[in-house]
């Protein structure tokens, strides 16, 4: 049976690793290539890079990071942030990433999902969803709203509707980020994760709020997530990936223990 995946997320700005709280106040904390290598050695099942660079120069630095990572780590990794066209996807994939993740771009231009899936296969396309709780609004039956531009812009789009629509368009996986929980280290948004995961037939990666191993246990069991994204709890060396996996394995969640 499949193991639940533990996925460190590396935010990269102009080639440097950063970590923010609720998408603000990013500080530089190191070299992404070294960090990726360390997480690979520690038993990460996959790695996510999120490029928060805006400049063209920063983008080519990122492609260089992707190339270096691909030479030294032999697990899947994805790259997201600023991917607007199939050509942007191609550059990242040819540099060595398995998957590309689209977020704001997909909300503004849903066709990019179908075009990307046609060009590279659904398994390459990850839909990044930034979601905010917004109950009691008739236009949002699930009570959750899609937000874009790193959480700054509300869209009026229902999160559950969008997840199913993106699945129909050919996305292979969903990375579901709760803006309310992101960076708080108080636990994942369990209700949101279960809602989305139980209504699509593609894997869902839970994101936002991980601070302790029991948060992962909760989202991988009650939340029905297929994988869990982690950041602060490993970047600041509070826990190792092996410690988190052992904790989960001891409590009956199958994880990959041999690497």
């Amino acid at each position: 049976m499949l193991s639940k995946r533990i996925i460190p997320c590396l935010d990269v700005r102009a080639g440097k690793l950063t970590k923010g709280v609720k998408f603000q106040g990013n500080i530089d904390i190191g070299d992404p290539v070294e960090a990726a290598r360390a997480y690979y050695e520690q038993g990460a099942d996959e790695i996510v890079f999120y490029d928060i660079t805006a400049s063209a120069e920063g983008r080519s630095i990122m492609i260089d990071v992707v190339r270096k990572v691909a030479e030294t780590i032999f697990i899947p990794f994805s790259v997201g942030g600023g991917i607007r066209t199939v050509e942007d996807m191609r550059r990242v994939i040819l540099a060595g990433a398995e998957k590309v993740s689209v977020n704001t771009e997909a909300v503004q231009n849903p066709a990019i999902i179908a075009e990307g899936a046609r060009a590279f296969g659904s398994q390459c396309i990850v839909l990044g969803m930034d979601v905010k709780k917004n109950p009691g609004n008739a236009a949002l039956p699930s009570g959750y709203e899609m937000v874009i531009h790193g959480g700054r812009t509300a869209t009026g789009i229902d999160a559950l509707w969008w997840a199913r629509e993106a699945e129909r368009l050919g996305t292979g996986e969903i990375c579901l980020n709760s803006i309310d929980a992101d960076g708080t280290q108080n636990g994942y948004e369990i209700d949101l994760t279960r809602l989305i995961s139980s209504h699509v037939n593609i894997p869902v990666i839970a994101s936002g709020g991980a601070g302790r191993p029991d948060h992962l246990l909760d989202v991988l069991t009650r939340g029905q997530a297929d994988a869990a994204l982690i950041a602060s709890m490993v970047h600041f060396r509070t826990y190792t990936i092996a410690e988190i996996k052992t904790f989960l394995q001891d409590r009956g969640v199958k994880t990959r223990m041999h690497w």
Binding site: L2, S3, D45, E173, N201, I202, P203, D226, A227
Partner: peptide, 15 residues
């Protein structure tokens, strides 16, 4: 199915 829950397709991940 496994453990009473429908399995997702594709089979994606480590096994």
């Amino acid at each position: 199915e496994a453990d009473g829950r429908r399995l997702k397709i594709p089979h994606m991940g480590w096994n």
